[in-house]
Design a protein around this nucleic acid. Structure first.
Lengths: 343, 343
DNA sequence: TTGAAAGCGCTAACAC
DNA sequence: GTGTTAGCGCTTTCAA
């Protein structure tokens, strides 16, 4: 291991001078010293020992992106953005998949033990306990959902706009009988997504019957049951809006299994985007949310908090939100319906 | 922050005694001391400062699982196993998505700067440079492919067995005209997968024409071209074996687009498994490889290397390997072929 | 412009 | 069985 001391010896300067130069600030050091020290460091292949630095400065220079699972299609996008920002800010970014049980402590310990300076919590389920525990331990946390009591400690997507767009898009295709499959029916976030969806539809003169509203999950584990219920409906909807891409994909699969063709007999739209949406038959039309931007902003905000620039106002990421048109939706008039809905 | 010193004060013992007790070894300490110290630590909510400990012991107590991307369906499985082992061994496990360019140094610096003790490289593409650089820097690395010059520093899957099983399965369904779409045609690993596939087929009396062999990638980006070529073949194969689930999925999609029904007109089989394989129509039959075990063994091996128990012999994970039967394959006799192949 | 020195929290060798 | 002490590599204040 090459230490500051070794570089100092090689360059002929004191260790403290070397330290100053290698930190690259605007310190008052002669050009010659700067040059010789830089050269010596490069020759020796010096790398600062971050444990020693961290012990001294009480900063780890790292942040953690905590996930409940690695296979949700939204996470790669968040990670991509977070990584960009982390690189720019000189932070190390670790992805940490926390275990379902004891999630809170495993994650918080990363900071309490000095491995990281803060946490970005990308949990899909509301976890107020975590935020409370973090606050008590004074662990800086940015959530990617609105679980925080302090809205400036969250970076949320504008799901109201996202679901409004989803609704507008379906209405624009001519649909009037639309089912909605949400996620986490118990959470207020999901409730407001549903409200926004319905409200947007209402504005366009489309009313949605309560019996057309279903609960689900991001993973779409109950897709089969939901499809059964939808197909039992007295008046079958011509479109199904879902709150996750996976749910959309799995609903399409369940419909196919039962001989219902998408999009000809029923349309399905997802929420959030991923390359995988292209690989199924039919490919999945979906509302793409700016998850990359969200990841980026989360890291920037955490950085600001860590440096106590707490001036940042609460932020909602609302651009770009767009419908990615693929095969699972089409104009109502182009569908192959047994009989047109009667109103 | 609660320090050892604070616990010592509270318990009425010296800091060094506290240190010994809290490390939990078989140190000679009175039962009373042990009890009072443990109690004080709990009351105060003491967490060891890992930077201080690491500085002193020259160990980070953490290992890194380096990925090129987060969205390959194989990675969640590897991570799951790695995480189990890490938890058991008391190591922190970080997932680190390294940038395409400068991958080597970004990852190696994690160790050279003392953030982690070793690296598990889950790269899908051969990267000999990395292993060479790591060796030069004396950074412990376990690769999940056979790039290492030292076979004891890799934990590889028994792909020979996997592809043999794939071949056996297709032959068992009655197929004799089988196309093979590999990955990374340039690497020796892929070559031997192909050889194993062909050899296994040969043993069952099935010869595979060189024109039925195609190159590809894990991501299946050239699925469209491959399908075009396959459909142009004078004698169309009745089955397509692929070396990745994603490639298999995308090939099915491209076939559907062109009006070719899977499995009735052609069978497709993937390699590696994931929940996603269930969600498409048709669902994808695939060879499931023991990636969870691989992840677990990789961490265990790295741990052994870090503690210089270098006695471990080279290891190939070969259980369990099994075919997960889904809808993309069926008996040749049950297919709906325009005319049976003429031999 | 440069150097001396203290100390971050912890471990481990050693003395008592 | 318990305490003393040196020092891991670094930053930073202060003095020269």
């Amino acid at each position: 291991m090459v230490r500051l001391k070794d570089v100092a010896y090689q360059a002929g300067y004191d260790i403290s001078t070397v330290s100053k130069v290698l930190q690259g600030g605007n310190i008052h050091v002669s050009a010659e010293a700067r040059e010789r020290i830089t050269k010596a460091a490069a020759e020796l292949g010096y790398r600062p020992n971050l444990m020693a630095r961290g012990l001294r400065t009480r900063k780890a220079g790292a942040v953690v992106l905590g996930f409940p699972c690695l296979d949700h299609p939204m996470y790669p996008a968040i990670t991509e953005g977070a990584e960009q920002a982390a690189t720019e800010l000189g932070l190390a970014l670790f992805a940490y998949k926390f275990p379902p049980e004891g999630a809170a402590n495993a994650l918080l310990d990363l900071v309490r033990q000095g491995r990281a300076d803060g946490i970005i919590l990308a949990s899909e389920v509301p976890d107020c306990d975590f935020v409370k525990l973090a606050t008590e331990s004074r662990v800086p946390v940015i959530t990617l959902n609105e679980y925080s009591t302090d809205p400036t400690l969250s970076v949320v997507l504008d799901d109201a706009a996202g679901f409004a767009l989803q609704a507008t898009y379906l209405a624009g295709l001519g649909h009037t009988r639309i089912a909605y499959v949400g996620v986490h029916p118990e959470s207020t976030g999901s409730r407001s997504c549903e409200e926004s969806f319905k409200e947007s539809l209402r504005k366009q003169g489309v009313l949605i019957d309560p019996s057309y509203i279903f609960g689900g999950s991001f993973g779409g584990d109950n897709a089969s049951e939901v499809v059964d219920q939808i197909l039992k409906l007295e008046q079958r909807p011509t479109a199904i809006a879902t709150a996750s891409l996976t749910m959309g994909t799995r609903i399409i699969r369940e419909l196919s299994t039962r001989g219902v063709d998408v999009p000809n007999q029923i349309n399905v739209i997802g929420y959030h985007d991923s390359k995988q949406a292209e690989w199924t038959t039919p490919s999945v039309t979906t509302v793409r949310m700016p998850s990359v931007v969200q990841g980026r902003c989360a890291v920037e905000r955490l950085f600001a908090v860590l440096n106590s620039q707490k001036s940042l106002a609460a932020e909602v990421i609302s651009e770009p939100i767009e419908v990615i048109e693929r095969e699972s939706c089409c104009l109502l008039s182009e569908m192959n319906l047994p009989h047109l809905p009667n109103d």
